[in-house]
């Protein structure tokens, strides 16, 4: 065997190098070889460094600060008023009761059950219609050329910058005139109009990321604009539509200002409106308020937990292909 791969000056004997250079196929492991370190080394590697510890400490502090009020609310909602007044963080001798919930559900001046129903009646259409209209309005902004496109889009952005207090006055008068004041429909319409701005912006940006080739391929395949929208664009927008649904749902569900302005009759009150009424006259009923709050926020939280999986799936699929 001639030493044709190494310079002759190299100290290693040519023959041993020759056999080392090419591994036989069975010498290649299936998994990475495990490193055999002793306990001390592994321990040293596992202990985080000082700056890293500091970062952990800050992160944990922020997380705790974030969760403590919610924890307090949750605990208070299950305990009698006496225990709450003594401080919800005292856990010894804790009584767990559902009384707050049952009382809040049918509170005489403003029953939570009724309020939650009203909120649902307003929120579901306000979310669904905004999703559909938003996608239909965002698609032309993302794909078509038409006169005043930039100007119209700028107008949408401008409306988004306006505070709700500003539009409330105009909407109040309009709803009064057309007879939709103090009705589900009126509030739904206000929420649709208010939400459309950001939904169009959000969906347009997402649609811009969908490759044009897909639509061209569909055009070649004979699909009409409407068919492209329904069979290609809408299914591909699922992750964005789910995000819109979750955010818009949370916004409409938790909205306090719009129901306050546009809902006058107590039987039409929405959940966020009812909460302050539960404070009672003589003494603040912390338990009732806490139970009401937990019930109110349970719905958007539940929705988020359920949809988060789809949302994640959709986003991953959108990124990998």
């Amino acid at each position: 065997m001639a030493d044709d791969t190494h310079s002759p000056g190299e100290p290693t004997p040519a023959s041993s190098r020759e056999t080392d250079q090419y591994l036989p196929p069975d010498a290649i492991p299936e998994t990475a070889p495990r490193r055999e370190d002793d306990v001390a080394t592994r321990l040293a590697a596992a202990v985080p460094s000082m700056p890293r510890l500091l970062k952990y400490a800050i992160a944990i502090t922020v997380a705790v600060l974030w969760i403590v009020p919610f924890l307090g609310l949750f605990m208070a909602s299950f305990r009698p008023l006496g225990e709450i007044l003594a401080g919800w963080w005292h856990v010894e001798g804790m009584t767990i009761t559902l009384e707050n919930y049952t009382r809040a559900w049918s509170y005489q001046t403003a029953p939570m059950g009724r309020a939650l129903f009203n909120t649902l009646v307003v929120t579901v259409p306000a979310v669904l219609v905004v999703m559909l209209l938003g996608a239909m309005a965002a698609y032309p902004f993302a794909r078509f050329e038409f006169p005043l496109k930039t100007t119209l889009f700028f107008l949408i952005l401008l409306v988004m910058a306006a505070p709700p207090e500003l539009v409330a006055m105009g909407n109040y008068n309009t709803l009064r005139e057309i007879g939709l004041f103090d009705s589900y429909m009126g509030l739904i319409l206000v929420h649709i109009g208010w939400g459309l701005g950001w939904v169009v912006l959000f969906l347009r940006n997402y649609l811009l990321g969908i490759p044009v080739e897909l639509e061209e391929a569909a055009r070649i395949d004979g699909a009409s604009r409407y068919q492209i929208f329904r069979t290609i664009i809408l299914p591909l927008s699922t992750p964005a539509l789910v995000s819109v649904a979750v955010i818009q749902f949370t916004w409409v569900w938790n909205a306090f200002f719009f129901p306050l302005v546009f809902m006058r009759s107590p039987e039409l009150y929405l959940a966020p409106q009812v909460l302050p009424l539960m404070t009672g006259r003589i003494q603040v009923e912390w338990g009732l308020v806490a139970a009401g709050s937990v019930m109110t926020m349970a719905v958007p939280v539940f929705l988020f937990l359920v949809l988060e999986r789809y949302y994640k799936q959709g986003v991953v699929a959108a990124v990998t292909d």
Partner: peptide
Amino acid sequence: SPSDRNVAMVFQNYALYPHMTVAENVAYP
């Protein structure tokens, strides 16, 4: 329009519909 001309086209990046299976892709036209 392209559909009136009865042309078929293969794109550089294939332009397969990512939300459909292979069979659905082929069946789409």
